[in-house]
Write a protein that binds this DNA or RNA. Structure first.
Lengths: 129, 129
DNA sequence: TCTGCACCTTCCCCTTAGGGGAAGGTCAAA
DNA sequence: TTTGACCTTCCCCTAAGGGGAAGGTGCAGA
């Protein structure tokens, strides 16, 4: 398969496939005589794994490790679990930050008339803190 | 005041102060004869406003508008409220995405033994989707 | 007066996870 | 043979900073 076909099958676009190769996340593709990258079903499989990992918010650094563990039949599941748990903590931290912002913002918006007058508790809060 | 002092007072570092000036978020500072930027209390005030806005997650694009509305005594509070409400929707979207990721990840981690064995439901999920 | 140090200036590169597009080569169908 | 789709590499852009180099300035101490 050429890169376009594998991009369609994996739902990872060609640009990203080349980048993932460059970053060592997927193996270097073989080349046709003309220099076109050549792929197999196996590559589609890896790319789907990468895509699903991205959907769960893993960083490319994590994904590189995950792909490597996935390929390594001598892995221990604790290694995978550690990566996931670290990721969970980071997401929880972000979640908390976002919730904090939202509760402040909701409070401010509730108290803002939102009419033609200039008085605005949102600006007051931004100013005074 | 030189940039270092205003950086300390506003808790926005010099690098960022220069960048904000470049982006038109804060007014261009006057210069000393030697070319050093010169600031007043007023600039500290604006920078604190910017900092607090960042803490609430506003983008620099939004902040540019917010600063401009803040300065403009003929503003209507509805303009400010619109910016805040749009920001709230975006944060809520992110929040939801993060929550979705977390619930999947927590489920996976719960089912992973995390021991020396290679079997791992986390990798299974990443693979199969 | 000289020197050293802290501070200032501009400039460039790096980060994440992509996306846009240019210039040029390849392939297959009409 | 031409045309259009596809491929290649290369460079630039995003957002919100951070690091650091090279060189100028200001001030205190010797």
């Amino acid at each position: 398969m050429n890169i376009g076909e594998v991009a369609q099958l994996s739902e990872v676009n060609s640009k990203m496939i080349r980048r993932y190769e460059e970053q060592g996340i997927i193996p270097k593709a073989g080349r046709s005589e003309a220099g076109y990258r050549q792929y197999s079903e196996r590559d589609v499989h890896i790319l789907k794994f990468v895509k699903r990992s991205r959907e769960l918010g893993f960083s490319m650094k994590d994904i590189k490790q995950l792909v490597s563990l996935w390929k390594n039949k001598a892995r221990s599941s604790s290694q995978v679990k550690n990566i996931a748990q670290k990721h969970i903590s980071e997401l929880e931290k972000k979640l908390h930050e976002t919730q904090t912002m939202l509760s402040t913002l909701n409070h401010l918006v509730k108290n803002c008339h939102g009419d033609h007058r200039p008085d605005c508790p949102i600006l007051d809060e931004l100013e005074c803190h």
